[in-house]
Design a protein around this nucleic acid. Structure first.
Length: 503
RNA sequence: CGGGGUGUAGCGUAGCCCGGUUAGCGCGCCUGCUUUGGGAGCAGGAGGUCGCAAGUUCGAAUCUUGCCACCCCGACCA
């Protein structure tokens, strides 16, 4: 490092770009659009995930898929359509999803009588309507019945990467769309303890992924009854805090008990020769994580991506005045690219002559590329490079010699720095409160996570939600037990729980 | 499904009240020249069913009615 350059002046921050303070949701939408992550589609509530946005999802998939495989799971695929009757087999489950199901009733179109377009052919009505899966527990447990007879068939450890549809009233890019992509793990076990262990294990996998890949610290906890998955005995979650002080549920892991086994009659013969119902879990994360990634790290210059999930980790921008310089500079740039690729980094050399360097700088900045290298004739002459990091916007001049190692260190540093920043943000925005007045005041003036005593009843949680829009995000798994009095009802409480307004 | 709002070129918009030139502007796009170390400049150019349908009128982006779509605020949710 020969010299430390200045932080980019505020003057040249992104044009026509909303700021977080000015209008948080517009800022979010601007990033999604301008970074080329996604756009609205012709279908209400559904989005088109564009190549750059999808590439982030693919990076997430790759990392998670490996973690699932490493914990013994296999991928499979179940149908997108679920017979309507399957849904009514588990009472709580129907109750929870009935209001947001898309239903297929016919299987054929015909030419309209007036010759304009096509209409549904009423003679092609399905005998039993098909539900487009909002989640796959029912079809999967109906299938598992045939897979499981003996304890020797257990455990079944299956994951599926799929799309699901939940007919939402109000949608937001990535955070809530009518159709979304996700993975859903569905496991079957011989004992309650084994199923519980699996539930915790996958929660840990999610937390590990969030913290080490997404660079987002998460709280691990148990959901209250109100927030529990429809059909689960217990729902566990990871909760993250976004920059506007709202919480985001980033993943869930459910202990389903024997509910689905009973509903779908999935029994197994134990070693002792006794018939018993199978114990189940399910767990999932979705493209919502892309939304989490945006809201956790990005700034008023655009997207900021952690190196481990960035589709492009390093962008190289050549600088030149004429053809001759272009050739020299690009030759050197290609050399650097090859060397960096030897370290398995994803590098983009942007040698397009149709855009100017300044334009490219801005482009990679709002696309969140962690590291940008600029190389010009002066650098070729001096054996140097200008290296800019996206998280701090700092620029430094590096010597070309051994640059691969320095970039590697830099990328690790950026990954760590993003995590630390997010962690200290969460710490600064987590508030223990003891009175109802304080609760409302903190919520309205600061937002963030509120740690407060709760009497454990659904009624109190409901009242709090009605009065403040805040819900219990989770009951921390690793929290110290501490007796106190409920912040709302004044009744006795065994431990503090985490409240927040949430996405 | 309630309450509010908006539909004009790829995007953002002016014009609408009070009907009357060839529907204007910015960004983007195309061509050429000069440029290229932080979103280039100049010159020229292309691009419009004014959301859809009907009505009023000599004449409708503009007025009326109906429909559709989208956005924001509520209830519901990963």
């Amino acid at each position: 490092m020969l010299k430390i350059a200045n932080i980019i002046p505020k003057l040249i921050m992104a044009k026509d770009f909303s700021t977080r303070e000015d209008n948080y949701s517009k800022w979010y939408n601007d990033i999604v659009q301008r970074a080329g992550l996604a756009e609205n589609s012709a279908v209400r509530g559904c989005m088109v995930i564009k190549p750059y946005g999808y590439a982030i999802w693919e990076k997430m998939q790759a990392a998670l898929d490996k973690m699932f495989k490493d914990t013994g799971h296999s991928n499979a695929y179940f149908p997108i359509f679920i017979p309507k009757s399957f849904f009514s087999k588990e009472a709580a489950h129907v109750e929870g999803f009935a209001k947001e199901c898309a239903v297929v009733t016919h299987y054929r179109l015909k030419n309209a009588p007036d010759g304009k377009g096509v209409v549904v052919d009423e003679t092609a009505k399905l005998e039993e309507e098909l539900i487009i899966r909002p989640t796959s527990e029912t079809i999967i447990w109906d299938t598992y019945r045939n897979w499981i007879q003996s304890y020797r068939d257990l455990p079944v450890l299956v994951n599926q990467w799929a799309n699901v549809v939940r007919w939402e009233m109000r949608t937001r890019m990535f955070l809530r769309t009518a159709e979304f992509l996700w993975q859903e793990g569905h496991t079957a076990h011989a004992t309650k303890q084994e199923a519980l262990d699996e539930t915790y294990q996958m929660l840990d996998v999610y937390a590990d992924f969030a913290e080490n890949f997404m660079a987002i610290p998460v709280l691990k906890g148990l959901k209250s009854e109100n927030e529990r998955f429809a059909g689960a005995e217990e729902t566990f979650c990871i909760e993250a805090l976004m920059q506007d002080g709202k919480a985001l549920q980033a993943g869930t892991s459910h202990f389903l008990g024997q509910n689905f086994a009973k509903a779908f009659d999935v029994k197994f013969a134990s070693k002792e020769g006794k018939l018993d119902y199978v114990w189940a879990t399910s767990w999932g994360v979705s493209t919502r994580l892309v939304g989490a990634l945006i809201m956790a790290h990005s700034d008023d210059h655009g997207l900021v991506l952690p190196p481990k999930l960035a589709p492009i980790q390093i962008a190289i921008v050549p600088i030149y005045k004429n053809n001759e310089q272009y050739e020299t500079v690009c030759a050197k740039a290609r050399e650097i690219k090859v060397n960096l690729e030897k370290k398995a980094f994803s590098v983009k050399l942007d040698d397009r002559d149709t855009y100017k360097p300044g334009w490219k700088f801005s482009e990679y900045e709002f696309k969140g590329v962690p590291v940008r290298i600029a190389i010009g004739p002066r650098d070729v002459e001096n054996g140097t490079l200008e290296v800019a990091r996206r998280d701090t916007l700092q620029k430094e001049i590096y010597s070309m010699e051994g640059v691969e190692d320095k970039i590697e260190t830099l990328l690790n540093d950026i990954q760590q720095n993003l995590y630390q920043k997010a962690l200290s943000f969460r710490e600064k925005n987590t508030f223990p409160v003891n009175t109802w007045e304080e609760f409302k005041e903190v919520l309205d003036e600061k937002g963030g996570f509120i740690s407060a005593h709760w009497d454990g009843t659904a009624e109190t949680e409901q009242k709090i939600k009605e009065e403040t829009k805040a819900t219990i995000r989770c009951i921390l798994l690793n929290a110290e037990k501490e007796t106190g009095t409920c912040v709302y009802s004044g009744k006795p409480s065994k431990q503090r729980v985490i409240f927040a307004r949430a996405y």
